[in-house]
Amino acid sequence: MKKVIVFIKQVPDTSELKIDPVTNTMIREGVPSIINPFDMYAIEEAVRIKEKWGDTEVTVITMGPPQADAALREAISMGCDNAVLLSDRKFAASDTWATSYVLSKAVGKIGEYDVLLAGKQATDGDTAQVGPGIATWLGIPCITYVNNIEEIKPGYVKLHRMHDEGYDVIEIEGKFLLTVLKELNEPRIASFRGKMNAKKAEIPVWTAEDIGADPAKIGFMGSPTRVVKAFSPPVKQGGIKISAEEDPSVPEKLKSYLREKLII
């Protein structure tokens, strides 16, 4: 049996984010949680690999509070076979260094695997550090920004890595972790059968002890970085608004506006 493991994160739905007009801070209460959008492409790719290879099991993992169970069930509804929730108070306040350690220890407990997948970054933290971190803890290569997989089989992949001037064509032999971009695929809608599987799936909860995590490497104390303060950036306000119908000279006005501001 071949094995694909997908790492996902439950994040607040940014499209529902609101800013408190008085305190100018982000309102988190009542904001629905979703699977991190980039992770949807990782889930889809894992299921496609399974369909292509046959005799393959897809396991989805997340670290989070008990309610992250819902994100795992959604992943199962899209075709993942089983899931693991890493949940323990001791994991709380882990930074990317500690989080990638915890996830790598979970992989260690699972044992054998062929491919690891994750989204490019999460839309809450926006760091893009956990995927490469997990791979490094496990001692396997990681390719980020993957936007095309030409060929994939157990122990081999040929892919494209997007960068700011185009893309690299890369080949890896052995085990590997990929972090993926939107362009890779189109995530499917859960089937009825998938939803049924999600409903009845038994999702184990693993604690720090279960995965044999070193207490000095997890949670607040295990995290090298500390948040000193969090604050809201100044709110951007709308400025000039002109109707082109009422004022045909608006292109010229824009040009002089940009000249005045020394932008052009």
């Binding site: 930074d95 990317t96 260094w97 990638s100 933290g125 926006d126 760091t127 893009a128 550090q129 956990v130 995927g131 490469p132 971190g133 791979a135 490094t136 803890w137 990681c142 390719i143 980020t144 920004y145 890595r161 997007m162 960068h163 700011d164 995290s223 090298p224 970085t225």
Partner: peptide
């Protein structure tokens, strides 16, 4: 925080056991 740095430095952080703040 280019594709180069965002891929490489998280690996470096684990390799040399150091903290890293992104972007």
């Amino acid at each position: 925080a280019t594709p180069f740095g965002r891929a490489l430095v998280p690996k470096l952080a684990i390799t040399i056991d150091a903290g890293l703040t992104a972007d």
